[in-house]
Amino acid sequence: MAECCGGGNRLVYACSGGADVGEIADRVARKLVKTGFARPSCLAGVGGHVPGFVASATGDVVNIVIDGCSVACALKTLEQVGADMTHFVLTDMGLKKGRTPVEDAVIDRIAETIRIKSSGRVEESPASTHDGCACGGC
């Protein structure tokens, strides 16, 4: 295990809803994690008021929240615990609910847009993906 961390302090959440845009939200969030831009968290953990997840969401972090549509379930879940967030709605970004193919080109484009719009809120070092600690940079 590495001695220390080297990452940013972004956590990402997706609504992961049943519609195509919900699936895209989920895959975009996973891509942001895989590319080291953000760390994963769990919307269900926050919604279930699991203390660790709530404390993580309300810590000194930037929460990136991705909703597939304007119903904004993920936003409302994070609001319940008083978390600040940067919020994205995929249907506001040009996707059509029920009419958008879940394919890599779409996921890559949305992930890149979110990455650009979310940059600058924290130091630019990417979130670490190694097995070290998960602190917000030390």
């Binding site: 968290s41 997840f53 404390a55 993580s56 602190c135």
Partner: peptide
């Protein structure tokens, strides 16, 4: 880390 994650803590 596994034990930390079991607490639901995603950011240390």
């Amino acid at each position: 880390l596994d034990e930390i994650m079991r607490f639901g803590v995603m950011m240390t």
